[in-house]
Design a protein around this nucleic acid. Structure first.
Lengths: 211, 211
DNA sequence: GAGAAACATGAGGCTTTGCTCAGATCCTCG
DNA sequence: CGAGGATCTGAGCAAAGCCTCATGTTTCTC
């Protein structure tokens, strides 16, 4: 329930047919992502992107209907990359006991946020409200994953497993994002990982049916 | 430690001397906040703000050196308002036992975020990186407060009280902000408050010196 | 190899926005 | 009252950004 309201469709232009065109699209997206991450949303003008990509502005508009469409595509690729890192770091987690699994989860989420923190934040700042769901997709996916993991462990005896999953994932995500923005270097602090583990395990223990 | 890097000073222009001028400033700031909250950052052009305030564009620039200075002032006032709500909802918390105090805290933080969720998000999106600390001030204040509260309860026997405070406040804040953005109506769900309480109490229990 | 389709170019049109300035109006206070 | 400071006005400048289009180049297909 609670769908995100109105949603403007992402206008597209011609998709590349030849491999040359595909390469051009890649170059453009990467250039844009780089500027966005390094100099922020304001610097990512379509002309600047085209220049950095070594491509004419007309070429950019051959593949993207407008600036927003380009941003959305960057968001899609970024989310895909984060999900790939997450999946990689989460491999074989099913066989682990709870504390070990939690450690893995923490490490995996942190690692996926490390893919490109600046880009992540820049996207949050520059995407229009209608398209924020593009980046939210990552957290939505993690939420689904955790929900499933919790369901697979009835011994946790959770009063409201789905809600607990939501609270955990959003809390963890918010904590990581805030930390990246305010004290980026602290993400490497082992003490933080320990504190996050305590938070997760504690929350699970505190969300039992008993009280 | 870990201070937020460079910081451009907020350019000011003449401060109002007469009460007429003060009133004008208020009208401008409120008009801007309204546009920001209702139509988003892109709609909040200086001309639009002046028009909605019923004031000429020249008047706006008499009091604000540039658009960013106006945004910063909006941020300052918004944070002050949130802090006022927080302080009000937190009155007399010192005498309560832990579970009751936590309930109060949860209610207080939620209430302060309810002041103007859309404006809160719009500010996050439109403030330049150099000025994001303006809004971060709220969470910084809450963090200090919680840190102090935890220090006052040695019976909690926390292994790293300050870190626990940080993790709790940032996690909670992130959770609330994400929820406001994705499912605003859910903020009223009593189940969410219960889940947050479980999270806090659980985290505290899980952060003991013992392990 | 020729025609067609895909791809690329970039000058510049069109719009918008932040902001200035020369002067008008209002308020205070001796 | 009347001088002087505070406040307000709004036409419009300069800069910047998004995007188009007429034209040229490369690649594919038969």
């Amino acid at each position: 329930m609670a769908a995100p309201a109105r949603k403007k469709p992402v206008k597209r232009r011609r998709s590349p047919i030849q491999s040359r065109g595909q390469a051009t699209v890649d170059v453009i997206v990467e250039a844009a992502a780089q500027i966005l991450a390094r100099q922020g949303p304001a610097a990512a003008t379509t002309n600047a992107v085209a220049a950095r990509a070594g491509v004419s502005i007309g070429t950019l508009y051959q593949y993207f209907a407008d600036r927003e469409a380009l941003l959305v595509e960057i968001g899609r690729r970024h989310v895909a990359e984060m999900q790939a890192v997450l999946a990689g770091a989460l491999a074989g987690i099913d066989g682990l006991d709870l504390p070990a699994a939690v450690d893995r989860l923490v490490a995996a989420i942190v690692a996926s946020h490390r893919v490109s923190p600046r880009l992540h934040q820049a996207l949050h700042q520059s995407l229009a409200r209608d398209h924020l769901d593009t980046i939210d997709a990552f957290e939505v996916a993690v939420e689904a994953m955790v929900r499933q993991a919790l369901a697979a462990r009835p011994e946790l005896d959770l009063a409201a497993p789905e809600l607990t999953a939501t609270v955990l994932v959003r809390g963890l995500g918010g904590l990581i994002r805030t930390t990246i923005r305010r004290e980026p270097e602290r993400l490497d602090d082992p003490a933080l990982a320990i504190a996050m583990r305590a938070m997760i395990l504690g929350t699970l223990a505190g969300s039992r049916r008993g009280a």
